[in-house]
Amino acid sequence: MKKLVASSLFAMLMICSFQNWAQSATNWDAFYRYLSTKISYPAEARAELLQGDNIITFNLDKGMVKNVNIQSQLSTKTDLEVANLILAYPAFKPAQNGSYAIRTSFRLQGANSTIINQDAQMPTGFKALSTININAMAPAIANAPKNGKNSEFKSENGTRIVLRGSNSQTAGQPLYVVDDKTVENFEMAALAPESIDSVQILKSLSAVALYGKAAENGVIVITTKKYASEKSKKTAN
């Protein structure tokens, strides 16, 4: 009798474990399908023959996405394309709490431009998710740059970035904080990509808690390499 009870309990535990594993696997598979079908190859990146990888980290806490960070930057538009969709994903709740890292690979068929961040390592302390591959055909543009990099952002009048999934009733311009200072009417075109050390995206309650009502459409926190170096020196002293 004891053997029968023990066997039954063992079988129930195995079934529960399998169900939990299956649910987790299904949830992540759905997330991968969501990103693969929703991410678009930005037209500007295609025109510039820009290809490579970005690596984005984020935390999950009871189904809420927190602390989205672009660890390896490809370009503003490709990076925010992925980050916005991570923020907007509606089905994280069943997923396990933790810190995650995901790589998105943008590739252009027929392009021979440099592949940026191809050898970038996934950050330690984060669970590495599957790589999302986004492919497109290289456009036939004469005199297109061949190095796959922008030397600087070209000015774009009326450039507007909306953080999907914010609490605001109307989608609006996010608040920009550059080197710990709030900047009004900021345009990403004002910064050369090589000068940026990190970009962090905040939304929802965490953004409002830190920066007040002005952050109800989300916050994009940008730290330049120069400012990061200065802060590091002050901390060391």
Rank of each mutant, 00 (worst) to 15 (best):
P174R: 01
K213V: 10
N150H: 02
S105Q: 14
T124S: 14
K66R: 14
Y41L: 07
G52A: 04
M14L: 15
T131W: 00
I102Q: 02
E194G: 00
W21T: 08
A11K: 13
V82W: 07
T224G: 06
S232F: 07
A25K: 15
A30T: 15
I220M: 07
Y176C: 08
S204P: 00
K231F: 03
M188V: 05
T182E: 13
T224S: 11
L205T: 10
A138T: 09
I15K: 06
D29A: 10
R46D: 08
Q173C: 00
E156D: 04
Q23N: 15
L175C: 07
G212Y: 09
I15G: 08
A192T: 04
S204V: 02
G110M: 12
V178H: 00
S17C: 13
A144E: 02
M1P: 10
L163R: 06
Q23H: 14
F10I: 12
N150I: 06
C16W: 05
N69D: 12
T131P: 00
I132N: 03
L175E: 08
N217T: 08
T26C: 11
A171D: 07
A207C: 09
L4H: 08
L9N: 14
G218F: 11
W28E: 08
L210R: 14
K66Q: 11
K231E: 14
V208H: 05
F153I: 02
S232Q: 13
S7L: 10
A136D: 12
Y176M: 05
A138V: 03
S24A: 12
E230D: 09
A47P: 01
Q96E: 11
N135W: 10
T170E: 09
K225I: 08
L202K: 04
D119T: 07
D79G: 00
R107H: 12
V208F: 07
L175F: 06
N135D: 13
L50P: 00
N133H: 11
A192F: 04
D61L: 12
A88D: 12
N112A: 14
A189E: 01
P94K: 06
A30Y: 13
T37C: 11
A128S: 12
A138F: 02
